[in-house]
Amino acid sequence: MYQLTIDKEKFLTEIWQKKPVIFRQAFKEFTDLIAADELAGLACEEEVAARVVVTQDQGNNWQVINGPFEDYDQYGEENWQLLVQAINHWYPDSQPLVEAFRFLPDWRFDDLMASFATPGGGVGPHIDQYDVFIIQGEGRRRWTVGDIGDYQQRGGVTTSPLIENFQPIIDDILEPGDMLYIPPGFPHQGFTLTLAMSYSIGFRAPSQQELLSSMADYLIDSNQGQQRFTSTTEPVAPGLVPSAQQQGLMDLLVSLAQQPAAYQTMLGKLLSQNRFELDICEAERLDAAELQQALQDGAVISRIGGLKVLLLENDSENRLFINGDCFEFAAADRDYAEMLANQTSVASEQALLMLQRESIQQLLLKLIELGYCYLADTE
């Protein structure tokens, strides 16, 4: 339905995480995923992360109002934008657009954000620390992108992504079906020319802070990481910490990073978690016979939007990481576990074969019970 026309191999070798680029007609005959009124309705839900950004002071200031929202009349017909995060969690019809970007790994995928903007609407000049693809739907928006550099936060607010103005290296207008790719660290700003819909596909990697915090939590919970620093020589001055001992202490952390058994559980759990709430299905307890009958009647097993199902290469154990948890399977069933990781839905014929494998059968039943997967009709 949504066919990405770019040369993916060339993109990965020459552009990915290197430079911002506009792709004209990246999606030919692009049609909007969702109507503006449906998007506005989603933003009224308590569970959905949404915000309105109002452009003030003739484009020199921006007010952010977080949802949920009851109505939008107060914002008028110009100078505001509605942004709704993770619509792929709440709006199943958005999944085909997500699939177009699965040439990039699922562990990096953050969310699909949709926005509706009135003329003059925007969020101001800012820098994101993740990769983003911005696809233009209905309407027209002007985008400027600057080069990586040392930029001052707007108003001196160090916690804000907003920055002072930048010198653009890209300054152009996106039409329906056009796509702008921006790597981490490049300042950018969008300005809405007409009523417009746009979609942002974000890819994010964990920071050093997130990795260290997750590692510390895991070591404490599992009672690991008890090794202490030892030395054979000590400094002459009692108040001195020699460089060699400083490095030796830090090498204790390096040694953990060189032991897969010490970090793989933490890493799998961290990378399979979502920043935004998932739309978990109502729990459904089935036994194997009931599931088999449903599959024989033609049902498919689909995972909920945004759910990450990951395998670690050379893992010390046979397990899938799903939404921050571990799910074990028999070593002989790895091919089927790979199917579950790589496919967002499993056809009835495949699923019936999976049911013949005890560990995969139990896994499927558990995922349905947890509301991570559900039975759907064949389209």
Rank of each mutant, 00 (worst) to 15 (best):
Q3L: 03
P20N: 11
P20Q: 07
I22W: 10
K28W: 07
F30H: 09
L33W: 11
L39C: 06
G41H: 15
L42R: 03
L42Y: 12
E46R: 09
V54N: 05
N61M: 02
W62P: 00
D71H: 15
Y72I: 00
E78V: 03
W80Q: 08
W80L: 10
L82F: 06
L83R: 01
A86C: 04
D93Y: 10
Q95L: 15
Q95N: 09
P96F: 05
L97W: 10
R108E: 02
F109I: 07
F109A: 04
S115R: 07
G120V: 00
D128I: 00
Y130H: 13
Q136G: 06
W143Y: 08
G149F: 10
G155I: 08
G155M: 08
G155R: 04
S160R: 09
P161A: 04
N165R: 07
Q167M: 02
I170C: 10
L174T: 09
M179F: 08
L180Y: 08
P184S: 09
P184H: 07
G185Y: 07
Q189M: 13
F191P: 05
G202Q: 08
F203Y: 13
A205R: 14
S207I: 02
Q208P: 00
Q209K: 13
E210Q: 12
L212T: 13
A216Q: 03
D217C: 05
Q224F: 08
Q226F: 12
F229C: 04
T232S: 11
V236K: 05
L240N: 06
A244D: 15
Q245D: 15
Q245S: 11
L249Y: 03
L252N: 02
L256V: 07
A257E: 00
A261W: 05
A262V: 08
Y263P: 06
R275Y: 13
E282I: 13
A294H: 10
D297G: 01
A299T: 07
A299D: 12
I301M: 04
I304Q: 06
G305C: 09
G306P: 10
L310I: 07
N314G: 05
D325N: 11
A331E: 15
D333C: 02
D333N: 04
Y336R: 04
L340Q: 00
Q343I: 02
S348N: 15
L355Q: 00
Q356E: 09
I368G: 09
E369W: 10
E369D: 15
L370C: 12
T378I: 13
